[in-house]
């Protein structure tokens, strides 16, 4: 498909999947004529009509709940939640229905569905357009959680999500929606969940991140390179399942790790990564794993720059792990 941004790749991938499988339907607020407020469903309504691209009432509970019922009946719904922050009015449907349906019915019913949502800060949206609620999702057994950071990975992961037999929360780095343009292959390809992407090889420190903060993490790695410090950079790509093997292997070899995520620090996903590293490869660690995260405040409108883990905070953490 040539050079494309993340948001263009989403629309293109949805189109390919709808063409491939007529069970795939889209539902959400403004996904129809408007093509989504970020244009992630652009032109699909015109192409597939109102039975496959469904503009819903303004109700996240209706969107997620109806997607569950559609999935139970054999469709493959892709629901859009306009901002990850608006998952909460539909949260019960996600947690009590979608996530638990297979388990509570003993495998009789299941909800193969995708819930797409732009997440993260840095767009001057205040706390109700900027949050990173991924911890809520990984803490809910029954959900898979994916968070790509590039157009290439977006296509492969979204295809896997749509074809997966379980509910998948597909988080999208909204501040990178149009920030990166890269060559996205034309062919049909899927990226397996739970397989991290080694973005840089290095020997002095490992930087682990996912989603929007991959951009800042790579900037930090560039800056370290200029200082003669070689950083290995891992993009997790999916949080549940997450690629423990790759992370443990890299960190065991290098001995020092910085974990970057813009969600609040308390029970941040990276706290799980840190706990796993200390439980499983303590002997190989030369320094404690250090997290660089958002703060435990509501997302602060006026302090985007200070709140988000930018390159400077990442570099400071690297200095700390190197000092041991």
């Amino acid at each position: 498909m040539g050079l494309a941004t993340i948001v263009q790749t989403i629309a293109h991938t949805l189109d390919e999947e709808m063409r491939r499988d007529d069970r795939v339907v889209i539902l959400g607020e403004d996904v129809g004529k408007r093509g989504g407020v970020f244009l992630a469903t652009e032109a699909l309504f015109q192409k597939y009509g109102p039975d496959r691209v469904i503009d819903t009432p303004l109700s996240e509970a209706a969107i997620i709940g109806a997607a569950v019922g559609m999935a139970v009946h054999g469709l493959r719904p892709v629901a859009e939640i306009q901002f990850a922050d608006y998952i909460f009015p539909g949260f019960d449907q996600l947690v009590s229905q979608a996530a638990k349906l297979r388990y509570r019915s003993g495998g009789q019913f299941s909800a193969p569905m995708v819930i797409r949502m732009p997440a993260g800060g840095g767009v001057k949206g205040g706390h109700h357009h900027s949050q990173s609620p991924e911890t809520h999702f990984v803490h809910t057994p029954g959900l898979k959680v994916v968070y790509p950071s590039t157009p290439h990975d977006t296509k492969g992961l979204l295809k896997t999500a749509i074809r997966d037999d379980d509910p998948v929360v597909f988080m999208e780095p909204k501040r990178l929606y149009r920030a990166i343009k890269e060559e996205v292959p034309e062919e049909d390809y899927c990226i397996e969940f739970g397989k991290a992407h080694l973005r840089r090889k290095g020997d002095d420190v490992v930087l682990v991140s996912y989603g929007a903060t991959m951009a800042e993490t790579l900037k930090a790695a560039d800056a370290l390179h200029e200082q003669g410090i070689s950083a290995e950079v891992i993009d997790l790509r999916s949080l549940l399942p997450w690629d423990k093997t790759t992370v443990c292997r890299s960190v065991a070899r290098v001995g020092r790790v910085v974990l970057v995520s813009e969600a609040p620090r308390m029970a941040n996903f990276m706290s799980e990564v840190s706990a796993t590293l200390t439980e499983e490869i303590l002997d190989a660690l030369l320094a404690p794993p250090i997290r660089v995260t958002g703060f435990d405040t509501p997302y602060p409108y006026a302090y985007d720059r200070e709140y988000l883990p930018g390159p400077n905070r990442i570099l400071k953490a690297v200095q700390k792990v190197l000092s041991y």
């Binding site: 496959r52 997620i64 709940g65 997607a67 139970v72």
Partner: peptide, 25 residues
């Protein structure tokens, strides 16, 4: 018969989704 959930009324949006699927197909 959709397996019962304790959370009151939480089965209603899924029921509507199933009905929409019946309609569009």
């Amino acid at each position: 018969v959709f397996t019962v959930a304790s959370v009151i009324a939480s089965h209603l949006p899924p029921a509507v989704g199933t009905a929409i699927s019946m309609k569009v197909r």
